[in-house]
Design a protein around this nucleic acid. Structure first.
Length: 578
RNA sequence: GCCAGCGUAGCUCAGUGGUAGAGCAGCGGUUUCGUAAACCGCAGGCCGGUGGUUCGAUCCCACUCGCUGGCUCCA
């Protein structure tokens, strides 16, 4: 077993690691042709990859789990043994475990350690629990395909995921948390709140329903407001270009397989997968002085990417999307200030949405890249400086940058703990030169501008998905598609409801009346399920007193107040984006 | 794209080699109600698609489309 380091002292992780060995043992007892490969501890559990082309069914998992319980019940000791690589190789060759031999080949040390329990021996650094009986309550969770060594050119193995905890209560709690997470899945919320849907007729391309469109447009509107104060100018650029555009940018070479291409009048066209090359053309339309830099082109244009079918996932991975995209053309001296401004804007936005757990990554030069090395080094240094000065802890991901420049990513996790990049900023080391962009510097000479790519929300689609999960569908008042539901107690109160509705709408609030012939409880329940922030209950008492009874979706009954007072309260909350 | 699983009414889900069911939603009535579900009735389906096996397929098989969980990828 290849083991991740850093878990040695955590008793739970040690136990999970041992559970992975026991699982491999059980699998080989039950499926003798299965070959073992690797099986590390991961966050919240463990997995083990087997070469077993027939694959495992969910029923197999039950059988494997049962056999694991037998092994745990047998309470056999884990024994560590150090042997030379040659000895280890002899052992695994005899067992026909070619993957272990391959792993051995990659180990530089002359001596390796083996761990044995019962008849099962694995190559492993350890450590393990003393005896199989020390493994706490465990559960196998799912089977999945996984490439050997994580390379899609290699054979696909069968991965079994499992987890183990110190106590049954802890395991149950974890499993319960997984169940609860499914309830917050943005796909489920989107359906329940009638925000968006998908249809096989357009895989990976969401239909935004009226309510979803309200939210979508409010997000865009919010960013537009910020553009005013941050000095951006919005542009509209073509959706369809001759592919020559991406031959110039370098995207064609790198991504042509992932583009929607079409042929018209002997010419190849493509739907744009990103805005940057178009913005380069726009910038190059006329001569620019250093005095007008930075130029910040913002573009909410729709983008299409032929994402592999198996990767599509609700709103978080789509084929059709828009970004709060912008490209900044500036002098090299202005880059630091632009980075600082971008980070400030990102901070401002994420504070509004309450995104607290942001993971910041620096993705550096990949193997295949365009542009001079010197520019890359300077760009990476500038990015690192920028985020560190802003006080972020940065995780470096070597070689993960775009082909044209290094990248900072601001990642958040979805409800199932999958990590998604929202904001990014990239310094372009290639495109300004490839598109021949110039500006006239102070000394009268022409110079190549620096170019930054940046998004704050990222794709609006993805952002909305993550936001729905973070809020469990309870969008803040300023974003809620229906902010106020007016609930007349009976038909007799409907006219008052209509009047109240008119007043609310006149102030720009998004409201509706539930005039159905239903009891109040049913109307409240419906509004609660629809996550409407406020309900106005109108009965005879309210009619007589010329007031409304306010119920908050989160805080419950707030008592009676004059309609004007309520309107003031809500409009303030909307203004302050609460 | 790769591995595996799943596709039954708008939604959530039962079900069987012999003409397909429930709850909710919808529609029609009754009821006119005080902070999370009133009552009665009606309607609703090429059981994802195509082909095959069979006297007969929603059910078994093959292919295909889509979704889900992973893996790879992510400008």
């Amino acid at each position: 077993m290849v083991c991740r380091s850093g878990h040695e002292n955590d008793p739970v992780e040690r136990m999970r690691h041992s559970a992975a060995h026991v699982m491999a043992d059980a699998v080989q007892q039950l499926f003798p042709t299965a070959k073992v490969t690797i099986g590390p501890v991961i966050e919240n559990g463990f997995y083990y990859d087997f070469d077993y082309p027939a694959g495992f069914t969910p029923d197999d998992l039950v059988i494997i789990e049962t056999r694991m319980r037998d092994i745990v019940a047998a309470d056999t000791p884990f024994e560590r043994r150090e042997v030379t690589k040659a000895e280890a190789a002899k052992l695994f060759r005899a067992k026909g475990e070619q993957y272990k031999l391959e792993i051995l080949d990659g180990i530089p040390d002359p001596v390796v350690s083996l761990y044995r329990h019962g008849q099962f021996t694995d190559l492993c650094k350890g450590p393990h629990v003393e005896r199989t009986g020390k493994i706490g309550p465990f559960k196998l969770l799912k089977v999945a395909g996984a490439y050997w060594r994580g390379d899609s050119k290699n054979k696909m193995l069968q991965r079994i995921y499992g987890t183990a905890f110190a106590s049954q209560a802890a395991l149950d709690q974890y499993l319960r948390r997984l169940e609860e997470a499914k309830e917050r899945d943005h796909r489920k919320i989107g359906q329940a709140l009638d925000l968006f849907s998908f249809h096989p007729i357009a895989p990976g391309a969401p239909f935004f329903h009226p309510k979803g469109t309200v939210v979508y447009n409010l997000l865009v509107e919010y960013i537009r407001d910020l553009y005013q104060s941050y000095g951006y100018t919005e542009v509209i650029t073509p959706l369809l270009y001759k592919t020559e555009l991406w031959k110039t940018s370098g995207h064609y070479e790198a991504f042509r397989e992932d583009m929607f291409l079409l042929r018209q009048e002997e010419e190849e066209y493509g739907l744009k997968p990103m805005n940057c090359p178009g913005h380069c053309y726009l910038f190059g339309q006329r001569k620019h002085s250093y005095r007008e830099l930075p130029v910040r082109f913002a573009d909410f244009g729709r983008l299409h990417r032929l994402e592999p079918s198996g990767t599509l996932l609700g709103l978080t991975r789509v084929r059709s999307m828009a970004q709060d995209d912008a490209h900044i053309f500036c002098t090299p001296e202005q880059v630091d200030a632009e980075l600082a401004q971008f980070i400030a804007m990102t901070r401002e936005v994420y504070a509004v949405f309450g995104f607290a757990n942001i993971e910041v990554t620096l993705q550096t030069r990949p193997e295949k890249f365009l542009g001079p090395l010197k520019l890359w080094e300077a760009a990476e240094a500038a990015l690192r400086r920028g985020v560190e000065q802003a006080g972020f802890t940065v995780t470096e991901l070597p070689g993960e940058g775009a082909f044209y420049g290094p990248k900072i990513g601001f990642d958040v996790r979805d409800v199932l703990d999958r990590s998604w990049t929202l904001a990014t900023v990239q310094i372009d080391c290639a495109m300004p030169d490839r598109f021949g962009l110039r500006y006239v510097a102070k000394d009268g000479r022409e110079a190549t501008p620096a170019m930054l790519h940046r998004v704050v929300l990222g794709s609006i689609e993805r952002f909305l998905g993550i936001l729905l999960e973070q809020t469990a569908g309870k969008l803040p008042v300023w974003l809620a598609p229906v902010q106020i539901m007016v609930l007349p107690m009976s038909d007799a109160l409907v006219p008052m409801g209509e009047a109240v509705l008119a007043s609310l709408r006149a102030t720009g609030l998004r409201a509706a009346v539930d005039a159905r012939n239903e009891k109040l409880g049913a109307k409240i329940r419906e509004a609660q399920l629809q996550k409407v922030p406020y309900m106005l209950i109108l009965g005879q008492k309210e009619l007589a007193g010329n007031v409304v009874a306010v119920r908050s979706g989160t805080a419950g009954d707030l008592g009676q107040m004059p309609l004007e007072g309520f309107i003031d309260r809500v409009t303030r909350e909307v203004r302050e984006r609460q």
